[in-house]
Amino acid sequence: MSDQILQGKTAIITGANSGIGFEAAKDFARKGARVMMAVRNIEKGNGAREQILQEVPQAMIEVLKIDMADLASIRDFANTVKNHLDSLDLLINNAGVMMPAYAKTRDGFELQFGSNHLGHFALTGQLLPLLKHTADSRVVTVSSLAHKGSKILFNNLDGSMGYKKFQFYGQSKLANLMFARELDKRLKAAGLETKSLACHPGISATNLFKFGKQDAPHFLIGLAGKFLQPADMGALPTIYAATHQTLKGGEYIGPNGKGRRRGYPALDTPHPVANDETVITRLWDVSEKLTGVTYDFS
């Protein structure tokens, strides 16, 4: 799939009402894709849709509700999509929370691991029937530089034995990266065309910098914007992973500048911690057990 032939394709983007997700939605819409903005707050989603339509009047874009911290909401969303679509070309696992105070999802998971990883694990598994029957489909999962040096705390996944918000953010982003690469491996082993890729935005000034579920103050986002990569640049690795024709699946895409913090998209190398096959397999098994979602690759 190249960015020249997004015309007529269908893309779902979680967390598409702001930041990287918003910029990706706008880019895909401009290139002729039908974009489904999967958002927790419908009012904000509709506002983002109106912004895109002002810039791209011909955009085919709709807003659907999903709460990545609620497995029932994810299931309802997936069922709605499967009832209305026969195919799905792109799934962009973008939504996330970053370093909130300790909190749990509706299902009792630590909020970052539950929303950032388990929610997308559940969503992807439930949309797999559409993806695997769509030629050249892709799943792109957004990770982070924060995966470096992180680990999966299997004995404390819910944070009940102690919680450090950056440590748990890094864990969730490591899980995203492990999931994306393991998914691609399993898709290939099953002989399926669907590709799974991971990406990261470098360090971007986006609305991901939140206080719990509250948006960061505008002055803080503005200050960050003077030093960090703007959201439209931060979205480029996502767009590249979703559309670049030479990618085979399993790649990790990030900015090409110093420290991979800024710049234009290029192949990146995951930290060695992301290559532990024992941890990867255990994470997959635990994720299936916690979410109740089992992947069908047949």
Rank of each mutant, 00 (worst) to 15 (best):
I5D: 15
T10Y: 05
A11F: 05
I12Q: 06
I20F: 02
G21L: 09
A24T: 15
K26D: 05
K26M: 09
F28M: 09
A29I: 03
K31M: 13
G32S: 04
V39P: 05
E43A: 14
E43Q: 15
E50M: 11
A59P: 00
I61D: 10
V63G: 06
L64F: 12
D67R: 10
M68H: 06
A69F: 00
A72R: 13
D76Y: 00
A78W: 08
T80Y: 06
T80W: 09
K82T: 04
L85Y: 08
D89I: 06
L90T: 04
L91D: 01
N93L: 08
M98L: 15
Y102L: 13
A103V: 10
A103F: 11
A103I: 08
T105L: 11
D107L: 09
F109L: 03
E110Q: 12
L111S: 15
N116S: 01
G119M: 00
G119T: 01
H120K: 11
A122P: 00
G125R: 04
Q126W: 03
L128A: 07
H133K: 15
T134I: 02
T134P: 03
A135L: 14
A135D: 12
D136M: 11
S137N: 08
R138F: 04
A146S: 13
A146C: 09
A146K: 00
K148T: 08
G149W: 07
F154I: 09
F154P: 05
L157M: 08
G162I: 00
K164T: 11
K164S: 12
K165P: 04
G170W: 01
L174K: 02
L183C: 06
L183V: 05
R186C: 03
A189R: 13
A190C: 09
T194V: 05
S196A: 15
H200Q: 05
I203A: 14
A205M: 07
N207W: 09
K213G: 06
K213A: 11
Q214M: 11
D215H: 01
F219I: 14
F219D: 05
L220H: 09
I221V: 12
L228A: 12
Q229I: 07
D232M: 11
D232F: 14
M233Y: 12
M233A: 14
L236C: 06
I239S: 03
I239D: 02
H244G: 09
P255H: 08
G259R: 12
G259N: 13
R261L: 13
G263A: 10
G263L: 04
D268Q: 13
T269Q: 13
T269A: 11
T269S: 13
N275G: 12
R282N: 13
S287N: 04
E288V: 05
K289A: 15
V293K: 00
V293H: 00
